[in-house]
Design a protein around this nucleic acid. Structure first.
Lengths: 336, 336
DNA sequence: TTGAAAGCGCTACCAC
DNA sequence: GTGGTAGCGCTTTCAA
């Protein structure tokens, strides 16, 4: 058996022409009304020779490669991004597509080079993704290509996009606290300005949710979105006499800092203060007590984006908002 | 300007033959002694037309695609794997290669399908990776391909492989404690049997390191490699009167559980007990006090594997062991 | 129902 | 130094 088996080899062995072999091997024998007997011979020959089509030759001819590119600013900076990649991988594989992954590090020059490489390989479609939800400008090289934005949007709304529904998530956080009976002393920890989109939308949702329940924010303890900053700022707040009934942390890492500050002062979650947070990272289940958190649905977002890209059906520009489910755990209790 | 510019278009515009254009565009004009003036014309024409070679056509001809596949069992399960992907991405991009990423979920059938897809696309080289360091059997489909194992080894040692040097890491952990003055009461937390390779090799290195310093393990507190298990097992150990001088946690998540158990009992790190750990995940810097941990060098491993695969130079089968650096932070102090 | 033939865009050999 | 030409393996049109 030769190293590289061509369609011609299969045809020869089946005693037929390349055309005939081609039609049966691409499953279009019905429409060509190929004799059943011929069909069998071709199939058997292909099998015996372990024929595999050369997708480069096919691609050169048809200009389709059955490949998708995931172009992202960062794939590894923090825990969650993996689910974005993994979801895209799985959804693409299901459809018989392979995924090129690229990381631009927000370097425009590198991005340009990477896109050129992708274009040169005639990639069929592009997932343009960001690690943090934010506005992006779609690179000019991608004009005219099939593109879906993942975890980002273009301000003009000209491209299809998939983002988490942060505002609804904010309402969920508020609702989780209100359902447990909290109305007073609900504090936010985190710097809403920092992660522009996520922070602002989460805040807006929280305000709306609280207001619907006849409540409102007691105040904001500003902190960077990191454990240490939250530990210090929230610690200062406690030391200054702050006694919240419940705390909404703008993400899980902030919640870790809040836990640490509370523990250091002999205060208990959820007996002294209830805590709810966003992201549902690994941390949430590791904390004691386990943290109720509203999940960033990275896997679902990636699946949806691949669906927009590869399944036919009309694709409207503008963002699709994917729900962020509350993972209720042990950090919320009625106010004392 | 037509949508798809071919080499012929460039040649036409430069008023030369396709061959000539080809040689100057592939940088082999020197060896062909092309006139400087001709060279310029070709380059200018290519620029003006924004010529980009069709890599599928080239690949069909030369049978090289300048693509690499990263085939892994899981890309997203936990925090670290991102660095594996990111490192491979960067190292491949540096060399002008693009990376296909595949996730098999340890499903042999899926793996077979994915490999077939990759083979059909004439991928140049394969990185066969696992999330946890372990033994693997290289799939038959990969026989005859250019392969490097990443974070795994084949028992026969027939393939080049890159793994972390866990044994040396164990010695580093022991050394870190001994240098701080610890000799007695050094306990291990973690179930050595669990993560077969990492656990066993870390333990072996620890024993060696301790023994060289004239010390030895006081005992092992068995625990699953998760915070909750460590919290409970180590908590029971403390409640049973255990008073370690220092603790070596078999990974950072165990260290988190140990911190929690210590804190719950009013014991302090590092004043009451010193802690050192493995993996250096994000957790390590988030903990209070920041955890000294021995890093899994995922990025370096990926870089090294790509180097083995793509840079020429003889590649010997068998594993390359990449050093695991100690990230010294605040969790180690002299014994009290 | 099957076969011959053209051609996708590129590389590389060979003759001039 | 330059240009013609064959052919990589496949798809697809057209004729038989």
């Amino acid at each position: 058996m030769p190293d590289r088996v061509t369609l011609q080899d299969v045809a020869d062995r089946a005693g037929t022409s390349r055309t005939t072999a081609h039609y049966v091997l691409t499953g279009r024998d019905r429409e060509m009304r190929i004799a059943e007997e011929t069909r069998r011979r071709v199939l058997r020959a292909a099998n015996e020779l372990r024929y595999r089509p050369n997708l480069m030759a096919r691609g050169l001819r048809t200009n389709v490669t059955r490949t998708v590119a995931l172009v992202t600013d960062a794939v590894a900076s923090e825990a969650y991004a993996g689910a974005l990649v993994s979801g895209a991988l799985a959804a693409a594989a299901e459809r018989g597509y392979l995924l090129f992954v690229c990381e631009t590090g927000e370097d425009p020059l590198l991005e340009e080079q990477l896109l050129a490489q992708l274009l040169d390989r005639r990639v069929d479609a592009y997932l343009y993704a960001t690690f943090f939800t934010r506005d992006v400008e779609v690179p000019r090289a991608l004009q005219g290509q099939k593109v879906a934005l993942l975890n980002c949007v273009d301000p003009a709304g000209a491209w299809p996009a998939v983002v988490p529904d942060e505002r609804a998530a904010g309402r969920s956080a508020a609702a989780a606290l209100c359902e447990a009976g909290h109305r007073e002393g609900i504090w936010i920890v985190g710097e809403p300005a920092e992660k522009v989109v996520a922070g602002a939308e989460r805040m807006q949702g929280i305000r709306e949710g609280l207001s619907e329940a006849g409540s409102q924010i007691a105040g904001v303890v500003p902190a960077q979105w990191w454990p240490e900053s939250a530990f210090e700022q929230f610690g200062d707040f406690l030391d200054g006499g702050g006694r919240p009934s419940a705390v909404i942390c703008l993400n899980d890492r902030i919640a870790l800092g809040v836990y640490q500050a509370l523990t250091a002062r002999g205060l208990s979650v959820p007996d002294d203060v209830s805590v709810v947070s966003f992201d549902d990272s690994d941390l949430a289940v590791w904390l004691r007590p386990a943290l109720s958190s509203i999940a960033l649905p990275h896997r679902e977002m990636a699946t949806e984006a691949i669906r927009l890209l590869l399944d036919d059906g009309e694709v409207r520009p503008g963002p699709v908002r994917v729900p962020m489910p509350l993972r209720a755990r042990d950090s919320i209790a009625p106010p004392r």
